[in-house]
């Protein structure tokens, strides 16, 4: 099937199998390997991207479902050489270790701050509760998102 998907502002047209998962479309077809894959059951969230601005698990979306839609991946966060505050926050607060969950966490964090610029700890925890991190015990992820919120509030 032919799909036309806008990813990080660029349009891609490809012929794909109907069963192709969006995560594999991004990784294998477009070579955007920042989005990861980590489970068979839609539990881990390392595959989270934004579909029309809303976080989705791209392992649970077919590439054909993204036809005519806009996808933003971690590669699309940095704008004109400037890091997104959530990216900076993760560096500042040591919000990552192996980095495997990080792209998904960043995409959810960006979405959260877009709709709630001043989330408290509980709201941050809830926002990322569909995603796993095996390294950080979540503490510094929460702090990273708070850092980004404060940075955005200060400009």
């Amino acid at each position: 099937m032919r799909v036309s998907v806008t990813v990080n502002g660029q349009n891609y047209v490809r012929d794909v199998e109907p069963r192709l998962l969006l995560v594999h479309f991004l990784r294998d077809e477009l070579r955007l390997t920042g989005t990861h894959w980590g489970c068979d059951t839609s539990n881990c969230g390392v595959c989270v991207v934004q579909l029309d601005g809303v976080p989705v698990k791209s392992c649970t979306v077919l590439a054909v479902m993204a036809d005519g839609h806009e996808v933003t991946t971690v590669e699309g966060l940095e704008k004109d050489g400037a890091l997104d505050p959530v990216q900076e926050g993760f560096v500042q607060c040591h919000g990552l270790q192996c980095g495997f969950c990080t792209p998904g966490m960043l995409m959810t964090a960006r979405w959260l701050l877009d709709r709630n610029p001043d989330p408290d700890e509980g709201e941050i925890r809830e926002a990322i509760s569909g995603q796993l991190c095996r390294c950080t015990g979540y503490e510094n992820i929460v702090r990273s998102v708070r850092w980004a919120a404060e940075k955005e509030a200060s400009v």
Partner: peptide
Amino acid sequence: MHRKEDARFIRGRGGYVDDVN
């Protein structure tokens, strides 16, 4: 000290085995 490795990971530029092509 902030980690040197973070620069690639926060940009989705880590290179894991499944990224080898």
